[in-house]
């Protein structure tokens, strides 16, 4: 079995209102040295696969078909 962490983030150039609003709120709280916030989403996925290469292929397909919208998102896959 493998445990994977799939991080979904917005492509460069796509507006990130969640990130920019979070930055605003952080500055209001006094964290004035914060200069940028980007939002992302993390999925922790357990897979009953022994083969890492196959697991990675499956995770990529999961991203393309559900976890990310390839029009606006990039993703990164890490294994534990």
């Amino acid at each position: 079995m493998v445990k994977a962490f799939v991080e979904i983030h917005l492509k460069k150039g796509i507006a990130d209102p969640e990130g920019s609003n979070t930055l605003k709120a952080l500055k209001l709280l006094g964290f004035e040295t914060a200069t940028d916030v980007k939002s992302a989403r993390l999925f922790e996925i357990d897979l009953e696969e022994e083969d890492r290469v196959r697991a990675e292929d499956l995770l990529e397909e999961m991203c393309n078909r559900l976890l990310a919208n390839p029009v606006i998102h990039d993703y990164q896959i890490r294994f534990e």
Binding site: I14, A15, P17, E18, N64, R65, N69, P70, V71, I72
Partner: peptide
């Protein structure tokens, strides 16, 4: 097969 547009935030 995959989305070709997006309705984002």
């Amino acid at each position: 097969r995959y989305p070709t547009a997006s309705l984002g935030w």
